[in-house]
Each structure stands twice: as structure tokens, then as C-alpha cells.
Design a protein around this nucleic acid. Structure first.
Lengths: 239, 239
DNA sequence: AATGTCAATATCGTTGAACAATCTTTTAAT
DNA sequence: ATTAAAAGATTGTTCAACGATATTGACATT
């Protein structure tokens, strides 16, 4: 509810107001800090902002055309999400994924994803989303679109969590996934980082569809150990 | 890495600096927004701030001797935690727990706490914490200190989550627990809201100590269904 | 009396500037 | 080269201002 798109009857004389940066952009209804958080988050997972990099308040607020205050609100949000790190009187930095953070994240994933699968109901709407994600991934693989494969993979696992029917769990997992992508960014999107997992996902969703939840959960456990190992392996090379 | 405790060799001449408001208070090194968030969080779980209540920026910033900007940063943090709710152009309100939010929270608890127990190791340090919390609760019960029982209960379940050895899971659970306490606030701390659960906790930790994790997890499932039912029951009366 | 309209008022949303505190870099001295 | 002091840059926090939106209250209409 509550739309907000009547504007007019004002016609202020100064012409600099609504001009963001690029033209043809007038929606953007949400508060500035939230929009900033979303945009910066996107820059983080796209790799445009690299781990360890310092984010100067002055530079960023000018670049994004917002006040320092608003920017700081966004920084605080992202810091709480774990994507940024705050050092007193020194500024905020892009979090650098470490072995221990990867391990921690996979502990979370194992608990949540396996737990969700274990009690999954085979007619849950999320199952359909899982299936679609798998098919999309396959399709992308044919086109060697590894970025697309990675994206479909994220969708798949988010759908797994959604099996639990918990808004809080979904939100939490979204944050975890974003943090993990920060780690992926360091490794690029090579074929063998995603491709082998498509078939495991397929197996898993098939098991769920056939109401064999326990086996699905077990298979997910295998998936996660394998995935974790691949990432840690690729990780220690960059060390 | 990077500790932050060398400071000195500065000794600035002006003496008015660290005086906050009341005297005899000189530590408080953390940023204002974080301190605010902590304090307001305390007011929320103590019931000093009641669900549904609106928190005026002007009034609160004056009362706490901080600027509106700093207060807004804290509000944003607490909103992300789910303790406050933000309505555009209307302000922030203390979240009012609902049936659906209680149910959601218990879904989270079941998944996380049972999952953590299922793979618990009987020599994990957290087991000791669990045992101590149970004994503390018993001791409080003898003294009819139901507030203390509730507190010990919180400690117990936090320790259960800590069995998973995941910093992120611990942090997430802390938020969930705070949100749940918001709901408790509406119900007071009567004996029969906490007392019957002390023995179940005892059972659970005993099972873990004897390396019978699966049974412990199952028992925790019982605990949670029961606890949820009690709360929902007490809840629909206030409706 | 109930309802709808419109101005008056209070708040939020966001910004920009200001200043103290602290970190970093440069410069100077031993 | 090492250390100390001064200069410069950045963060931490506050304040004041103003547009936009919501709420309140007065007033008119049915």
C-alpha cells in the first residue's frame, strides 16, 4: 500500500533537484540509505569494489551524490551484514574473506540447508522454484554462460532455505549468500567452479520431488562439503 | 589481527572532552550509534519501551543527549534487527509481536537448536555452559527468582546454538532471542512460563553429556513445541 | 451530528557546514 | 637511519535548515 507518485503542483525554480546522475530515472521510492545499501551491495558482489579496499566517505558521498550522513547510515547497515568492516577513526573497508569466514559460512549453510531439506514437503511451492533453477542452470551451461549458472545456483539454494517457510531464515540466508559471493569474487566464475554442481542440485530436487527428504538432505551435505573444499582449495592459492 | 590498544603519547590539554552527561563515566569507547543501539535494545527487552509505541526522533535525541543523525543510525540498526519498525514519513515504532512472528521465530529455533544438538560433541566447551545455566536456573527457582530463571534459560539456549561453533549463527540467534523477549515482555515472568522447562533443559544437557545427541535433539524438539504452545496460548488471551 | 475540505502544525528525510578527535604523512632534528 | 614534531587528511558527531509528508484542527456542507 501507499504509493507515492504524485509530484507536480510544485515547480520549484531551481532545476538541480531531482536530477540524480543519469537522466530518465525518477522512481527510486525507498529511503536513500536503503537505496545506497542496495547499490553498494551490488557493487560488492559484482566485484567492482574489491576486498580490503577502503571506502572513503567524502569520495563516495560525492560519487553517489548523497550526503555523508546518509552514506554513513548505509555503511552501518552493510557493516552489520558483514560485507563491510569498520575500524574506528580509520574508515570502512570491504571485508576480506578468510578461510575461517568461509568455514563459518559453510557451517551455517550445512545446518540451515540440510535442516530445511530434512523436513521438506514435496509439494511446497519452493520445490518448483528449485526445479526451475536447475533447468535454468542447465540451459546456461549449454551456452557456456557461467555467470548465469552461478546466478541460478544462488536461486536454487535460496529456494532450499525457503522450504523452511521462515521469513527470518530467508533474510539471514540472503546475507550469508552475499557474503559468500564476496569470496567467489576473488575466484572468478570458471566452469569447474559451478558446473559440477548442477547435477547434484538436480539429484537433490529430484529426491525432494519424490518425497525422499532424508536422502536429499544427505546429498546436500555432500554437496556442501565438496563445494567448501573447492573454494578453500582455490582460496589457498591466492594466499 | 590488528588489536587496537595502544593509545597514549597524546595527552591533550583541554579537560572538557570525555564528560558525557552523568559523571563517573569514562569508558564507553564504542561509537555513539552502537551505544545507542545497545541502550535502546536494553530498554526494549526490559519492557521500558512498549510494543507499538512510537519513538520520536526529536524527543529521544534530546532525552539521550545525542544528535538526531546519530539516533537515526541506531534506529536503522535496530530496525534491521527487527526490534523496531520503520514507516516512511511516520517514524519508528516498537515492533509488536504477532502470532505469525512468534511462529516464525520458533521455526528458526527448531531448525537451529535441534540442528546444533544433532551434531553436538559431548566435550564441547558450550556443554559446560549449558550445565551451569541449568544449575543456575535451579538455584533461582529455589529463591523464586523467576527473572533469574528466565535469564538462565536464555543463556542455556544460546549455549546450545554455540555448539555449532559458528559466529554468524550465534549472532543471528542473539537477534532472534531479543525479538522473542519482546514477546515475553507482554506476558510477564510468571512461574509457569519458565519453571516447567528447567527440567527439560536438564534432561537435554544430560543427554548431550552422555553423547546421545540424537535424543537430545529430539527432546529439544519437544521443548520447543511445548514452549511455543504456551506462548501462543498466553498470547491469544491478550488479543 | 456526521462528513468532507483546506489550511496550520508537527515530523520525518536529507543535506551541508562546522569542529573536535584521531590517524597519516611530511618535515625537521638528533 | 631513527625519532620527534608539525602539518594535513579523514572520521565522529553535532547543529541548523528546508522540502516533503502526515496529522491536527477549524470550518463549511449535507
Amino acid at each position: 500500500m501507499r504509493e507515492q507518485t504524485q509530484r507536480a503542483t510544485h515547480d520549484r525554480p531551481d532545476g538541480k533537484h531531482w536530477g540524480r546522475n543519469s537522466m530518465t530515472e525518477m522512481a527510486e521510492s525507498l529511503p536513500v540509505a536503503d537505496r545506497l545499501a542496495r547499490d553498494i551491495r551490488a557493487m560488492l558482489i559484482s566485484g567492482e569494489l574489491k576486498p580490503g579496499q577502503r571506502l572513503s566517505e567524502a569520495a563516495f558521498s560525492e560519487r553517489l551524490n548523497v550526503s555523508r550522513n546518509s552514506l554513513r547510515e548505509a555503511f552501518r547497515l552493510l557493516t552489520k551484514e558483514g560485507l563491510l568492516q569498520h575500524e574506528a577513526n580509520r574508515g570502512v573497508f570491504v571485508s576480506v574473506p578468510s578461510m575461517s569466514s568461509i568455514i563459518d559460512i559453510y557451517r551455517v549453510r550445512r545446518l540451515i540447508e540440510c535442516g530445511a531439506l530434512l523436513k521438506a514437503w514435496h509439494l511446497h511451492p519452493a520445490v518448483r522454484t528449485m526445479r526451475q533453477a536447475v533447468e535454468a542452470a542447465k540451459s546456461c551451461r549449454l551456452r557456456s554462460d557461467w555467470q548465469g549458472v552461478g546466478s541460478a545456483n544462488m536461486t536454487f539454494h535460496a529456494a532450499v532455505v525457503d522450504l523452511s517457510d521462515s521469513a527470518r531464515l530467508n533474510a539471514f540466508y540472503a546475507g550469508i549468500a552475499a557474503e559468500l559471493r564476496l569470496g567467489f569474487g576473488l575466484l572468478g566464475d570458471p566452469e569447474d567452479l559451478h558446473s559440477p554442481f548442477i547435477d547434484m542440485n538436480d539429484e537433490i530436487v529430484t529426491l525432494v520431488e519424490n518425497n525422499r527428504s532424508a536422502e536429499a538432505a544427505s546429498r546436500m551435505g555432500d554437496y556442501l562439503t565438496l563445494s567448501e573444499r573447492v573454494i578453500l582449495k582455490a582460496f589457498e592459492k591466492t594466499l
